[in-house]
Design a protein around this nucleic acid. Structure first.
Lengths: 343, 343
DNA sequence: ATCGAAATTTAACGCGCGTAAACTTTATTA
DNA sequence: TAATAAAGTTTACGCGCGTTAAATTTCGAT
């Protein structure tokens, strides 16, 4: 359909009858030219097969249209989902998303940022690994490139943070569990790599104290991102040693809960909220798989979509105003209780 | 530590005492210069902070060092895992991976390829959506860019294909199930989007016939990539209507099986291989979550690592020899039976 | 019809690096 | 040690587009 292939902007200027600088302006920002010329250009674009050379285009631009998205773990459907949301928003806003996963490795995280640096991105949306991240090198990067953190907060890094309000989300879960049964014990990793885990721990303690209950932390060993396995191994141990301080277990996240549920099942424990059940188990995050666990997992959903939207929007504003915020802003979004069968 | 920031290759040539064309050669391929000069350059690189401009570098190169990786669904841990393997291999080979997910959408798939085209990649590793893919547009892309398909085969697309041998993998599973209990019925989507599903269907039929059993296909409706939900909904229906033709169900993939297991659990059916179980369920793929289902899922593992390695290697050979293979080569890798508790 | 602001055109330079050709230096072999 | 190949240096041009400044056109409002 589109007959002739045009090799550069000069040539496209010739066939379209528009001067090259105007074309350059158009490709940089279509709405920066007069409506009539815009439609002439777009008419020509229909007839002729031309795309500006990506490399030549970005070479002299002070700011590219690229936006880096870095997430800690691509194989975790939770992050994959949130990344998908962010990606779409970036595209819609006319930028070019570049998605990078850190595979749970702080070295890879820095590597990702260094790789982004060479493509001179307009900005970066970063969900950091957390405790294991190298805050100095992260900060060094953020000094050069406008960066918005999401999901996991590192106070000293980036111009803004968007995440969920663990105090609120853990709070409603503790409230719910206490209302409907025994006060929960909190099942978590002893030294979690994710800062949210620490927030959730203290949110749990606080909520329990508020309700006049004694908090019980079940802190299990384990490093890395294989949460299901950690939940499974330590769940198996805790259950078979019969040293659970409560019949209600609130797990620090859904992936731990998935492992814990698997352990309970294998040990023949009935999990659920009704009578005849030995245990109640709840999670946190509304992981895509949490609706298919046995029993289905009661959890609290993070608002993926809102987190994605708010963080993208914050970054766009920074880029378009070409100004960093005076002080670092943190936005915390509320979670929603998802009642299922496990608690 | 690295004191002065060098702004271009000219300047780096000055401070390093190496001529610019030689530097250019080095950055294009470090082993193309003499060992002694290479170490001089790398010595200077330690002292001075210089990276070639990504855009200027690629502008005039006939072939960039970029390799596109396109997978159908980023939020599926199976693909995320295989993508991670491929990514690492691409990096190790000195190329720059660019990972793109198609979100189950054929339009997005084409979009991804078009986006890759503008960055002039040296090659592309493509796991296509399958039946819903647009084969003509895919082929059009492959005509311009060396492309190796993996996971899902479309016979008319790409120079090579690497995937798993569904005949073999389904075969060993059917053999195993028949040896240890009732011959299985095959649970699958009626019109699956993935070509592997069709291969598995016929592999099942063939294996059953070979063993002298009557094959039973349970073909359920449903479109898209929400396999767990489809498995759950239709599993619930099939079980509660009591029209399962066998007490052994072989699911076309693990994600369907995960949904099916969830349905069985909710309906109070005991699943497993031992006595006292009403049902046996098996899957296919060794999905990362299949070890945490209730009960754990008996399945057949695809050799992620081998598929990644073989497809990457095939592409590298094409790129480095600058030649397309005479005829399309297909490599099928064997799966391994993973015995767990569900069957 | 007139005027001024806004948009476009013309002309020209620069970006950082790829690449080619001719020449010079270094390493290898006899 | 001389001959020869291999590697590096000099010089110079080109890639495709960003960008600027001055000249010109277009457009809406008077």
């Amino acid at each position: 359909m589109k007959e002739p292939k045009i090799k550069n902007m000069e040539e496209f200027a010739a066939v379209s009858g528009i001067s090259r600088p105007t074309l350059s302006k158009y490709f940089n920002n279509p709405s920066s030219v007069r409506r009539s010329t815009r439609s002439r250009i777009e008419g020509a674009l229909e007839k002729f097969d031309y795309q500006p050379n990506f490399y030549a285009m970005n070479q002299n631009r002070r700011l590219t249209k690229n936006i880096g998205i870095v997430i800690p773990y691509m194989a975790d459907p939770f992050f994959a989902e949130i990344a998908r949301n962010v990606e779409n928003l970036v595209l819609e806003a006319g930028y070019r998303p570049i998605l990078l996963g850190s595979h749970g490795d702080p070295y890879q995280e820095i590597e990702n940022l260094e790789n982004l640096r060479v493509i001179k991105p307009a900005g970066v949306l970063l969900a950091p690994l957390g405790r294991v991240s190298d805050p100095e090198r992260l900060s060094a990067f953020c000094a050069d490139v406008p960066t918005v953190l999401f999901d996991a907060n590192i106070e000293t890094v980036g111009e803004a943070f968007v995440g969920s309000d663990n105090n609120q989300s853990v709070g409603i879960m503790v409230d719910y569990l206490c209302e409907t049964g025994e006060p929960p014990a909190f099942f978590e990793m002893k030294s979690p790599s994710n800062p949210n885990a620490l927030k959730r721990r203290s949110a749990y303690v606080h909520a329990m104290n508020t309700l006049g209950h004694v908090p019980h932390l079940i802190q299990v060993p384990g490093e890395g991102w294989d949460f299901e396995e950690i939940g499974f191994q330590n769940g198996t141990r805790a259950i078979s040693e019969r040293n659970l301080p409560s019949d209600t277990i609130l797990c620090s996240n859904d992936r731990l809960a998935i492992g814990f549920l698997s352990a309970a099942f294998q040990l023949g424990l009935r999990v659920g909220s009704g009578p005849g059940n030995a245990l109640r188990v709840a999670g946190h995050d509304d992981h895509p798989f949490s609706r298919y666990t046995c029993p289905t997992l009661t959890t609290v959903s993070q608002n993926y979509e809102a987190i994605a939207r708010k963080s993208a929007q914050t970054l766009f504003e920074m880029i378009e105003s070409d100004a960093r915020p005076i002080r670092r802003v943190e936005t915390l979004l509320e979670g929603k209780l998802i009642r299922r069968e496990s608690a």
